[in-house]
């Protein structure tokens, strides 16, 4: 189990970022499709920063009390809490599509906003109860 927080800048080297997330999450005990889901969701959050969030930000990952959390922060602060659509947006090009996808892939998605910074938190339960909690959702 890992519990120390790691942080990386969000750049256009998304492949390296995905590898870092994958390695950390696997060590924290996330496996199989849920590991894939977190990597896909975190990648979407990073794209959001590159495309709409001013082009720069940070991704931090931590594991505390059986919950793996990925915090993706931009330096714009436009994204507001409650922006995650519950229904799939029809347009694939807008920001809502990536947010919707994150909501489908993760146990929870929350957005915090302070002036000049919005942070998306993607959470996944690891260990006992994780598979149970999401089994009805798996495709």
């Amino acid at each position: 189990m890992v519990d120390h927080r790691r942080q990386w800048p969000i750049t256009d080297d998304l492949a390296a970022l995905r590898e870092n997330i994958q390695r950390y999450a696997a060590q924290a005990g996330l496996t199989g499709p849920r590991l894939d889901d977190l990597v896909i969701a975190a990648n979407e959050a990073a794209i959001n920063v590159l495309e709409h969030g001013g082009g720069a930000g940070t991704l931090a990952i931590s594991c505390d009390g059986g919950v793996l959390a990925v915090d993706v922060a931009d330096r714009v602060g436009v994204l507001r809490p409650g922006a995650v659509p519950s229904e799939r947006p029809s347009g694939r090009g807008d920001r809502g599509f990536g947010l919707w996808l994150m909501g489908e892939l993760c146990d929870s998605v929350t957005i915090d906003r302070i002036p000049g910074q919005s942070t998306i938190r993607l959470s996944m339960q690891v260990g006992e109860g994780a598979a149970l909690g999401r089994s009805a959702h798996s495709v």
Partner: peptide, 9 residues
């Protein structure tokens, strides 16, 4: 992984 995201989207 691809099949999952293809289905989901």
């Amino acid at each position: 992984r691809l099949a999952r995201i293809f289905r989901l989207t």
